[in-house]
Design a protein around this nucleic acid. Sequence first.
DNA 1: GTAAAATTTTAGATTAGTCTAAAAAATAAT
DNA 2: ATTATTTTTTAGACTAATCTAAAATTTTAC
Lengths: 217, 217
Amino acid sequence: MLSLTEENYLKAIYHLSDGGAKAVLTNALAVAMNTKAASVTDMIKKLSAKEVITYEKYYGVNVTPKGKTEALMVIRKHRLWETFLVDKLGFAWDEVHEVAEQLEHINSPRLIEKLDEFLGYPKVDPHGDPIPDHKGKIKIQPQVPVDQLQIGFQGKIAAVKDSDSNLLKYLDKIGARPGVKIKVLGKEEYDESMEILIDDHRVFISKAVSQNILVVG
Amino acid sequence: MLSLTEENYLKAIYHLSDGGAKAVLTNALAVAMNTKAASVTDMIKKLSAKEVITYEKYYGVNVTPKGKTEALMVIRKHRLWETFLVDKLGFAWDEVHEVAEQLEHINSPRLIEKLDEFLGYPKVDPHGDPIPDHKGKIKIQPQVPVDQLQIGFQGKIAAVKDSDSNLLKYLDKIGARPGVKIKVLGKEEYDESMEILIDDHRVFISKAVSQNILVVG
DNA sequence: GTAAAATTTTAGATTAGTCTAAAAAATAAT
DNA sequence: ATTATTTTTTAGACTAATCTAAAATTTTAC
Ligand SMILES: [Mn+2]
Ligand SMILES: [Mn+2]
Ligand SMILES: [Mn+2]
Ligand SMILES: [Mn+2]
């Protein structure tokens, strides 16, 4: 149905739209896909023809219900493969995203169901991101990035951004993994750096880092 | 280096050339790739430019040492993935070839080494075909198709052709699996059907079947 | 050893995905 | 409310992979 390239565009649109909540503009998609606006316009016409998005000229695109399901299937595959690579093959969590970008396009419903079973039906991937089930159902709990928290906040790390290997290596070093408890001790006005407690261990993190750690109350 | 399509052509050339032993003609490749001779000519020019084959106009192509290594790496991936699907995910041996055709093009040296380790460095795939090691080394023992055997021959099934799902289901039913002992009892001149003993169980097989079972002495 | 047949290559087109440069539309500024 | 700026779309061109039809070459037949 969708080509590899079309799947990647649709996935990016889904993410940029916050799961289908808002419209996505041409330039935003061009940045996300590391391509030019003209190429994006061409592609969104194709995706629109395939009825996975709706397109209003000059006003961006929206994901259709059909498109949302398709995007969630690609995301399901991506996250199941990342889980496989870490849990079964012993990859580090910063090494899996690139490979999963390839594996997510393997087309075999039977394979992905068998893989899900083999992994024990995991609920989240190695970075804490929820894995949609075989119907595309995904459990989203409201996650807040650390840089938006008040001083004194206490909670648990839910997930971290998975696409930057160096960030993940650093997060691993300071113990910032999904499930670990976190508390905000202080915030520096000047550079928005923060002092936080990660599993009772005190660390200072820059805004670049605090934006990429997501917590739940 | 090579595109997915180029990898598929190179693999087909390698197989048709009997592991690099003989030249491959345009039409033979067109049949194998299910495409037209004109398309093959275009592609072999590209593969020739990338120095994985040598090309003499009107006289076919030969695999270079570099091309042989690249072909063996694709075959290595294909057979490791088939082994994974059967041994770890519980696929039947007739269900894996199509999926492996996709998975063989995933590009990640680390992934394939980890997978090899996870599978316990298997020597053969589910159909009995040898798996090249990480250096491309492959152990080839002279295998003979059953239809070419003399009456009275005794030996062991080494491998079976893996690309036809219905054939594999039938072979499974008559117990014709790699490792099983086999003996030729008789041969019918008219239709070249044969009477054979598979693991001491007497069966009659057509030429279409006997061609696809490979044995060692 | 020339003519017919088969094989292979070339020529010209098509589709997917991309690009640059120019035109069109929307947004911001005066 | 025009003008200027930014954003988006269109136009035209390029590469990879494919096709059909025609030309070139090799092989087979007589
Ligand atoms: Mn990822
Ligand atoms: Mn992808
Ligand atoms: Mn196979
Ligand atoms: Mn393939």
